Computed example of a mutant assay.
Amino acid sequence: MIGTESYLSSACLSHYPDLVNAHHGDAIYFLQKAQINHEAIHSVDRLIPLQSFIYLLEITARELNYPSLSLDLAHKQDINFLGPLTLMLYKAETVAEAIETIIKYFRVTVSGVSVEVTLLPDTLVISFNCNIPYIANSTQYQDYLLASSTNTIWELVGRKSPLRGCYFTRNNEGADRLSVYTKYFGCPIAFNQDKLCITLDNKILNESLSINDAIMVANLHTSSSAHSQFKDQVIEVMRFLLASGLADIETVARKLGYSTRTLQRRLNEHATSFAKILDEIRKQQSVRYLTDTNYRLTEVSTLLGYRNLSSFTRSFKRWYGSEPSQLRALNKPNASL
């Protein structure tokens, strides 16, 4: 387990300000109330505490009288809300491989929530377990998790694989709300269930993926201003790819629409290199992970794209003259190694 706190990619905040503004609210006010840095809404590589994100959704929904906030948020977001995990899914060829990748990623980054897959004779059950008391029975947590999971599946294979059922562990909220859920998920809805889960035809596991690579590229460029410098765009893409283990020069060049040679040449023109930028990003991100999260050192090294902890430790000593465990001890005295 990764300490006592779980984290999500700040990509899960995409479209949140738009929805709040449409309901005459102040997104910055709610972010501050949830103790989330407002800069997170403009970034895809930050980490925000899961508890803070759910609290943000709860107070926003309550104060704006907007119970469908999480459903609307999940509906507006595409698969990029998964952050670096999006790029890891590009390695998968089938839904089964994609689900396996998602489960492994959750184990590393979202310690308080686990995903379980159960195969019945003709049904696939994807269930979610949460060991964080405040979150487990939260309406907005359950809505966002099941809605975003459903949308992810639809983006992976298209809507040709409808849900068979959607099950909530919390209490029923009345007939008027039930119709909202039935319309959204397009399947029977049940409350007061033992498991928070969705069910589908298990044949979906062998379906080929249909992830649109252009979606991720478009979003990366959209998040940059029209006047962003070339180097800034390279840094943005590299930071996004880093935790997925795909921050190599070939992948970065492809995402930016360049050949590897052209990317190298243009970086040379800016008096830098791919290796220098990667090293600087790792240097900056290492401090963020060590001071703002409870991730184990081995997990920090993985998120920074290192093959092992010893390689990360050598780099950290080169950057700061001390070992990462020393910085962790100063900021998180009870964190695990």
Rank of each mutant, 00 (worst) to 15 (best):
T222W: 14
A11W: 00
R328H: 00
A136W: 00
L13D: 05
K91M: 07
H38A: 07
F316H: 11
S228F: 06
L263M: 02
A147T: 11
Y90G: 05
S68F: 00
I48A: 05
A98E: 02
Y181V: 08
A226T: 10
S223W: 10
V287N: 08
Q229T: 12
A275Q: 15
L85Y: 07
F81P: 00
L241R: 05
S259Q: 11
I153K: 02
S244M: 10
M1K: 11
D72P: 02
E58N: 13
T291Y: 06
A147V: 11
N268T: 13
H24L: 14
S228N: 08
R46S: 09
L327C: 01
T152E: 01
L196A: 05
S138R: 08
T293I: 13
C166M: 10
F30I: 01
D201F: 04
K317N: 11
H38G: 01
A92M: 09
A335M: 02
S273C: 13
Y320F: 15
H227S: 14
G186N: 09
S223I: 11
P324G: 08
L87Y: 12
L241G: 03
L47E: 09
Q140K: 04
Y144F: 15
K255N: 09
G112S: 12
N334D: 13
I204S: 07
D248C: 10
L178N: 07
I99G: 03
Y320P: 12
I215E: 05
D248Q: 11
A218H: 11
T272E: 03
S210F: 03
Y66D: 06
E299L: 04
Q32H: 15
A253E: 01
N129W: 07
R46G: 01
F128M: 12
E299R: 01
R314P: 01
T260G: 02
S224I: 08
A253D: 01
A92D: 10
V110N: 04
T182M: 12
N334I: 09
L146A: 03
L304I: 06
L71T: 05
P49T: 09
P84H: 07
T60L: 02
S301K: 02
N171R: 11
L220M: 10
L82E: 08
Q326V: 13
T123G: 05
L146K: 10
L256Q: 03
L196C: 09
T199G: 03
L290W: 06
D45L: 02
G186I: 09
E100D: 15
F240G: 01
N171P: 00
S325T: 10
V217K: 14
S244N: 10
S286D: 04
S179F: 09
Y134E: 15
I79Y: 14
N172Q: 06
N202V: 04
A275G: 00
D213F: 07
S10D: 09
E63G: 04
L57W: 04
C12T: 11
Y90Q: 09
S286N: 05
A98F: 00
L13N: 06
I153A: 01
N331Y: 14
K203D: 14
Y141M: 06
E5P: 00
Y16S: 03
S315Q: 12
A92L: 06
